[in-house]
Simulated assay, not measured.
Amino acid sequence: MASKISELTDASGFIESNLYDYLLSVSLREPQVLTQLREETAQLPDGEMQIAPDQGQFMALLIKLMGVKRILEIGTFTGYSSLWMALSLPADGLILTCDISKEDTAIAQRYWQAAGMENKVDLHLAPALDTLNDLLSTGAAGTFDFAFIDADKVNYHHYYEKSLALLRPGGLMAIDNVLWSGEVADPTADDPETNALRALNLALCQDERIDLSMLGIADGLTLALKKS
């Protein structure tokens, strides 16, 4: 583990860096293969898209607590989040993950294989909305236990609605970047991504189909539990 993990992630903006490093030093149990993947990803030009290690460990804990077997992930990137989740699944568990980048997911596949998790990950290289529509049209509604959304923000509402349909009753959805480095609370921020996140946050607050909690972990993480 790097001595200063806060220097390798851009996702700790809501907590002072020395306190964040302390938090990780007394709580993070990151397997070596994940450390290597995180450090490699941090060197990429868009490495800041990687989730924080404490967030990965938190989602892995949720997956174990819920006895999750089927996961839907929208936004694979280099596979750090999917590998955290795959390592927490039982032997017969599966992640279906969506992305459009062959280059980024080539890194992901290398690390899935290194960790012996390649058989637990089903990568779909296509626009995520196409994959979600295909799943819904082929009878997959209500078959996933957990969903994680971390992709292009302007489509978050569409991803949310389709993922909610694919979740079973009692299934959990985690939505990343909902605080957007504080931009959602800045009245001068008027870009499409920020406006999309504001609209989603408000819509979820009013959505009676779910139980809701927004957490200040990393760049903001919303948990939405689909009601029975």
Results as ranks from 00 to 15, higher is better:
202 L>P: 08
153 K>A: 09
157 H>I: 06
150 D>F: 02
185 A>V: 05
136 L>D: 04
116 G>W: 03
137 S>F: 00
196 A>Y: 08
193 E>T: 02
110 R>Y: 00
154 V>E: 13
204 L>G: 14
206 Q>N: 11
153 K>P: 08
180 W>N: 15
148 F>W: 11
143 T>M: 14
146 F>H: 09
138 T>F: 02
139 G>L: 07
177 N>Y: 05
164 L>K: 15
141 A>M: 12
201 N>G: 04
181 S>Q: 14
137 S>D: 13
132 L>T: 06
173 M>V: 06
124 H>P: 01
126 A>V: 07
169 P>V: 06
179 L>H: 06
119 N>W: 01
167 L>C: 05
158 H>W: 11
109 Q>D: 13
196 A>W: 08
111 Y>A: 02
135 L>M: 14
130 D>L: 05
135 L>A: 07
147 A>C: 11
111 Y>P: 13
138 T>D: 08
136 L>F: 04
180 W>E: 12
114 A>H: 02
132 L>R: 09
149 I>M: 04
184 V>P: 14
189 A>Y: 02
175 I>F: 14
168 R>P: 09
143 T>K: 15
155 N>Q: 06
188 T>L: 11
206 Q>A: 12
174 A>S: 09
131 T>K: 08
156 Y>K: 12
151 A>H: 11
183 E>C: 04
116 G>D: 01
188 T>V: 05
138 T>H: 15
148 F>K: 07
173 M>I: 05
161 E>S: 14
141 A>R: 13
154 V>I: 06
171 G>D: 10
150 D>K: 07
146 F>G: 10
123 L>H: 05
176 D>W: 09
136 L>M: 15
196 A>L: 02
169 P>F: 05
114 A>T: 00
115 A>P: 15
137 S>E: 15
127 P>M: 00
158 H>P: 07
192 P>M: 03
199 A>R: 15
154 V>Y: 05
192 P>T: 04
157 H>A: 14
205 C>K: 14
111 Y>L: 01
180 W>Q: 14
206 Q>L: 04
164 L>E: 09
119 N>I: 00
127 P>F: 00
119 N>K: 10
142 G>K: 01
151 A>M: 07
110 R>A: 08
190 D>K: 09
112 W>A: 08
154 V>S: 09
139 G>W: 10
190 D>N: 14
127 P>D: 01
121 V>P: 07
178 V>M: 09
164 L>N: 12
111 Y>S: 10
124 H>Q: 15
114 A>C: 03
193 E>L: 01
206 Q>P: 05
164 L>W: 08
118 E>H: 11
125 L>P: 12
132 L>W: 13
131 T>I: 12
170 G>F: 03
195 N>I: 04
129 L>W: 01
170 G>E: 05
144 F>Y: 15
128 A>V: 03
191 D>F: 01
114 A>Q: 08
161 E>K: 12
154 V>L: 02
137 S>Y: 02
130 D>C: 02
173 M>E: 11
138 T>P: 06
149 I>A: 04
195 N>Y: 01
118 E>M: 06
137 S>C: 08
180 W>F: 13
137 S>R: 15
197 L>K: 04
170 G>V: 02
206 Q>C: 07
157 H>M: 13
111 Y>W: 06
195 N>L: 15
